[in-house]
Design a protein around this nucleic acid. Structure first.
Length: 280
DNA sequence: TTCCAGGAATCTT
DNA sequence: AAGATTCATGGA
């Protein structure tokens, strides 16, 4: 087991892995476990110490974005009382740098589903098509490569209970398998062009594209607007009754929160239940 | 049972 | 350019 010192590095592991941005982390006896790429990662936080095994230190820092100047970003987006409260409550929540392929399929599976439902679908796909890994007597499954999924029949994929998303997943697999450099190309593009390119895939609309850009491509202008975020913007920021269009919501947010609007989105998402249950 | 969920595609106005 | 409908599934 290795250690990493978080001195002067704000980080909350629990919040970061359980806030709904990544779908494969599970807690067991004080540790968080997840299959990341080809290995199982095991990690826990005690104050400003991380205990971990699985990744190298560089991989750990990169995945959790520990090299990102979080305090500076939070200071930058801290433009009103509500986001201020979210920052107070969630400080240390970081945006994870996920694998682009797994992230893409995950958010294709995320449409019209709650977080437990998304996790189930990802797990089903991985159990059926991934490879087995084991740690501490627990079995994990790698996320299936595009090269594997693109050879699958739509019906076989559908058996993973992905519903109408079956064809979308197969199409995405075909794209990724035929164009191994797709992710590098997206990475190079500025936000709006990267988004347009992702949206050429069936099953990838503005919301899914924004999630993938934010959680896998470090495009922090991306501001995913789901039903929760739309409700918060409408009732707490714009005081309106009319439902906001996706474009309106995103433009307002980027204008209001600035270049790190994506972080603001994740912090507001982090307190979505509290906001919604305390009445309009 | 009913309603809802990190929506998108397709059809109607 | 906006609305309404449909899609499939599981959680609450």
């Amino acid at each position: 087991m290795q250690t990493f010192s978080l001195k002067n590095i704000p980080f909350q592991l629990d919040r970061t892995v359980s806030c709904g941005q990544a779908f494969r982390w599970r807690q067991n006896e004080g540790f968080w476990y997840a299959p990341i790429a080809d290995r199982v990662w095991k990690i826990r936080q005690e104050g400003d110490i991380l205990w971990y095994e699985g990744p190298t230190e560089d991989e750990l820092v990169r995945y959790f974005g520990l090299d990102v100047p979080l305090d500076r970003i939070l200071n930058d987006i801290d433009t009103d009382p509500l986001i201020h409260a979210a920052i107070e409550q969630c400080r240390g929540l970081r945006i994870i740098r996920q694998d682009p392929w797994e992230c893409l399929v995950s958010y294709i599976c995320a449409t019209c589903a709650n977080i437990p439902g998304i996790m189930l679908r990802i797990e089903n796909l991985s159990m059926k098509y991934g490879r087995n890994l084991e740690l501490d007597g627990q079995v994990f499954h790698t996320f299936p490569d595009a090269e594997i999924l693109c050879k699958e029949d739509i019906c076989a994929v559908r058996a993973c209970k992905v519903g109408y998303r079956d064809a979308y997943i197969c199409k995405a697999a075909e794209m990724a398998a035929n164009d191994p450099h797709w992710a590098e190309e997206i990475q190079k593009l500025p936000y709006h062009q990267a988004k347009e390119k992702l949206m050429t895939l069936p099953g990838v609309g503005p919301k899914v594209a924004d999630c993938v850009l934010l959680f896998a491509f470090e495009k922090y202008e991306a501001f995913p607007v789901d039903v929760w975020i739309e409700r918060i913007l409408r009732t707490k920021y714009l005081g309106g009754t009319r439902k906001l269009s996706y474009k309106e919501a995103g433009e307002f947010a980027r204008n209001h929160f600035g270049q790190y609007a994506g972080y603001a989105q994740e912090y507001l998402f982090g307190i979505r239940e509290e906001i919604s249950s305390k009445g309009e």
